[in-house]
Design a protein around this nucleic acid. Structure first.
Lengths: 347, 347
DNA sequence: TCGGCCCAGTTAATCGATTGAATTCGTGTC
DNA sequence: GACACGAATTCAATCGATTAACTGGGCCGA
């Protein structure tokens, strides 16, 4: 079917070994032979058989990317950036959607790593520690965690390598501080948080950060209401409905994720509330069209390009046998017009 | 490193061949042996080595997906859907971003197919016929075209297999007819089209459809101004700027692509025009957040889920040696509020 | 009792590229 | 003239799973 090394060897009048050596630039072949071999190879349009090469060299030049959902604009952009960087180095990217489901995630990990489909995996962990991650770690798989760290609690002897897994993520502390300052400065005293699942490390962390920022500005913790969603748009809608149902609903809402922010916006609008006149809203993540929303959404933007670069840098380091550090890149608060003073301030 | 068949064989006290047979459910092994082998296999967490299996069976259980950009919401959703369907059948998806660049696309095709990295490719062609597609066809690669057909002009003897390549796409004719009816019904008499590159078959086609729909409603062809973009948001902005610069700018705009519609919206707003009061805008493709835009965007929505399903159905048929037909799924006009009467109708 | 047959399993070749060890050949040296 | 040496190339084993062809043994019928 396809062109094999044997065909080139035959045409060039040399052995397969020589062809291989020539193509790989090994100095054991003469310059003349190399040139002849290469000429024939690309005249025939030779492409090495990926499976054979992988089998022999135990390296696939492919990387796995497990995200919770590529349709989430944040992960879509991240995936695109990562693919481009990987392609530039000759790596393929195998895309996987875990749908925030730990079992599916583990299935992918096992398929990709245990079956040696890829040389390494970049994982957006769905939830905390799972058997699959544990197994991958035990097998000393090359893995970098994206966007979310995972807690090491309860897992005994593994913590050493767990700590060695590089994490690449945005750090929202500063931006979240600005959010608190902004909202409290505008006069909001009851704030609703549409949080991530509190079963995840990132969920608890972002929640604590937010709460810390608000109380740090002098707000009582009791003035903050929290409802957790699950990263999906619909859960953002539900969360807002729950918050609105409280006897004294918040006047400002902060979503911990881009899609949930969209959902929150939908629910608020459906409830007849106008943003920012009646309520204020702050989102997370950013997209080119966020400023075309009604109203343009104030949001905590993650540095996606840098995140992708850092992730690939870590991956390369891992492949080179190094132990890359964890990376946290600071997020920026993008001020648009979805925040204003609370309605009581009008009256 | 990983568990190999040999390890299972040793523990089970049988040959590797028996293990392979047992695991594949071949009837040449006794029920008792099969059970023992399977038990040991999953106790050890055995995963077949993908490279070895591919090499031997000449099938990778992986599919290539070449899109122009996953960050485009339409392709992101398509990619996600496709991945999910593929995963359910045990197929991996290798993601590639061509960036609408024919050379990059051909590079991917060659890598994926000639190197037998994948069993088949689903391609959103960037432009028309290219050497890479030609080569893939000559090598009788399994390929399905997504979203866009390619013209067969100028390519001699290849047209037979070219015609046999299944294309899975949305058909916007009916919806575009409704768009024409809507805009002309509202009173618009000067319409701007933000078209796709006219070098692509899909670009010319969508353009002709749009123009045909408008003239079919009695509009003079001279009343329609066309500026081509390149699928990207920025080109949508430029196109609108160009159209606005004309002595008598259109009162309604139709974008042939989702991202360009976003760009158009930005440019219109930047020009101080309000939608739909001053100008009307119709987009292409849809996303969950299109109705949160300011104003909610009227658009021609492609049936993404069905597109993904049809694409995978075609791929499976191809893998089974069949010759699936081309599929065209009808798009729906989603009426929201970005269209209104032209401003002259006010005065 | 012997040949044929089937069942359960094994042997060994194979897929295509890589690479350490072996080989060939020409040249230089004593 | 024998030998060592290095450069260029070839040999052959290897990666792990699959499968056609073969083997051994139990059973049946003649």
């Amino acid at each position: 079917m396809a062109v094999r090394m044997r065909d080139i060897a035959r045409l060039a009048g040399v052995s397969e070994a020589t062809v291989s050596l020539a193509l790989s630039g090994n100095s054991r072949v003469s310059e003349a032979t190399r040139r002849r071999v290469i000429a024939i190879a690309d005249e025939l349009g030779y492409r090495p058989n990926a499976a054979a090469r992988s089998l022999r060299t135990d390296s696939t030049r492919a990387l796995g990317l497990v995200v919770s959902d590529v349709a989430n604009p944040f992960f879509a952009e991240l995936a695109g950036r990562i693919e481009r960087i990987a392609a530039a180095q000759g790596y393929s990217v195998v895309l996987c959607n875990s749908d925030e489901d730990a079992a599916r995630q583990d299935g992918y990990l096992s398929r990709l790593l245990a079956g040696s489909e890829v040389d390494g995996v970049m994982l957006v962990p769905a939830g905390g520690m799972t058997p699959g991650i544990l197994a991958a770690g035990a097998a000393r798989a090359r893995m970098v965690l994206l966007d979310r760290p995972i807690a090491a609690d309860g897992v005994g002897g593994v913590s050493e390598w767990l700590r060695a897994i590089p994490v690449v993520r945005g750090s929202g502390a500063a931006a979240l501080g600005e959010v608190a300052e902004l909202l409290i400065g505008l006069g909001h005293r009851r704030i609703g948080i549409i949080a991530l699942p509190q079963t995840t490390q990132i969920g608890r962390e972002r929640h604590d950060m937010m709460l810390g920022a608000l109380t740090g500005q002098g707000l009582a913790a009791s003035a903050v209401e929290v409802v957790s969603g699950d990263f999906r748009q619909h859960s953002g809608e539900l969360a807002v409905e729950r918050l609105l149902a409280s006897p004294n609903p918040p006047t400002a809402y902060v979503a911990a994720d881009g899609l949930m922010a969209i959902g929150a916006m939908k629910a608020l609008r459906r409830a007849g509330l106008r943003i920012p006149r009646d309520v204020s809203l702050v989102g997370y993540d950013d997209a080119p069209w966020f400023d075309l929303l009604d109203p343009p959404l104030t949001t905590v933007a993650q540095p996606v390009v840098e995140l992708a670069e850092a992730a690939m840098r870590s991956m390369y380091a891992l492949l080179a046998g190094e132990t890359p550090p964890t990376t946290a890149l600071t997020c920026q608060l993008v001020r648009r017009s979805s925040c204003g003073p609370p309605p009581d301030a009008h009256s």
